[in-house]
Amino acid sequence: MEWFDNFWSIYSNLVLTLGTNALLALSIYLTLSCGMLAMANAAFMGIGAYTASILTMTFELPFPVALLGGMAAPMAVAFIIGKPTLRLSGVYLAMATLGFGEVVRVVILNTESWTGGALGLNGIPQLTEWWHIALAVALALAVLYRLRRSKVGRAFEAIKEDETAAGLMGIDVNNTKMLAFVLGALLAGLAGALNAHLTFFIGPNEYGFDRGVEILTMTILGGIGSLAGPVAGAVILTLLPEALRSFNDFRTVVNGAILVLIVLFLPKGIWDPSLLRSWLGNRQTARRGS
C-alpha cells in the first residue's frame, strides 16, 4: 500500500513516540496510584537512555541486553534513593525528586568520557523497531492490569486514600511505596532506552524539569482512574504539538495551562470512569423517556 508507505516514512517516529510516551505516562501512574507525587521519572528515563546507549555504542552489547541494562540501572538507583526520599510526602517528595533529577543532569554533564557531556551522545544505532515498542506497551498494560486487580493494587489504593489507615490494616506501607517507585523507574528506563535507539541522539537537557512536567501532565490529563487514562493523555500531548506547530516555542506554557484546566474542571482526568458511566446512564434514560 503506497499511501501507508508514504505515511510511515513521514510519521513513523511520531507514531513510535506515542508508544514511548505512553510508557512514561504509565510509569508516573504507578507512583500516583500509590499516593506519591514523585517527579523523578524524567531522570530515570535519562538513566535508562544513557545506560542502554553506552552498552550498545561502547561495549557493543546486543540490543536486548542493552534494554535490560536500561531497565536495571534506574531500578537500582530508585531503590537507593527511595529509602530516604519516600519518607517524605506531597510537595516535599516532589521537591526531593526534582532535586534528584538535577543531580542526574549534573552527573551527565560532568562525565564527558561516557556521556558526551553537554554535547550528548550522537550516532546511537537505530535498533528500535515498531514491534519493540508495541510489545513493551502491551506487556506493561497487561502487567499493570493484573497488578491493579491484585492484593498489591488494592494496597496501592488504600495507601493513596489514607496512609495511616492502610498501615493499621496491616499493609506494609514503606515496602509497597518502594515497589511502586521501583516499577515506575523500570518503565521510565525502558521508555528511555527505546527512545534513545529510535532518535540517534540524546542530551542531558532532554531529561530535565520540562520533561518531568510533561510526563506528569500526560497522566493528570488522562486521569489515573483507569489504565486507559495515562495512555490517552500521552497520545493527546504527543499529537498536540503537531497540531499546533506555530506555537511550538510555547509548548511548556500550553502543558502548564492544560494541567491547570484539568485540575480545575476535570480533577479525575478526561478518562474518568464515573463520568463515562454517568454519561451513558443519562443517554439510556433519555432514550427510554423518548
Rank of each mutant, 00 (worst) to 15 (best):
L55Y: 07
A52F: 11
M45G: 12
L264P: 00
A52I: 07
M36A: 15
L276W: 12
T85E: 01
E2R: 15
L280D: 08
L147N: 14
G117M: 03
I262H: 03
S12F: 06
W279N: 13
V263P: 00
S89H: 10
W130I: 13
F156A: 01
A234C: 04
T56I: 10
P125M: 13
L127I: 01
L18S: 03
L141A: 10
T111C: 10
N6F: 13
L221H: 01
G153D: 08
L194T: 02
L23A: 13
S290N: 14
A49Q: 03
N6H: 14
E157H: 11
C34M: 02
N174F: 15
A43G: 04
E102K: 07
C34I: 02
E2I: 15
N41M: 08
G222C: 03
I159F: 09
V173D: 11
G281D: 14
G184N: 11
R154S: 03
E157N: 09
P125L: 07
L261R: 03
E161Y: 00
E60D: 14
F59R: 07
L198E: 09
G35Q: 01
M178C: 04
A38L: 07
V182C: 14
L141T: 12
T56D: 12
S12D: 04
A136Y: 11
G35F: 03
F100I: 05
T31W: 12
F200I: 05
R245G: 07
I202S: 05
F247D: 10
E206Q: 15
M36D: 11
L68D: 02
P84L: 01
L30A: 06
G189L: 01
Y145L: 09
F156V: 05
L61H: 09
R245C: 03
I10V: 10
A140L: 09
T20P: 09
W271G: 12
L32C: 01
P267S: 02
S53R: 15
I236L: 12
G117D: 03
M36S: 13
L168E: 08
L68F: 11
R251P: 00
V260E: 03
F156I: 04
N21E: 07
F250I: 11
R245V: 08
P62M: 09
W131V: 11
F265L: 11
L127R: 09
I262E: 00
R251T: 03
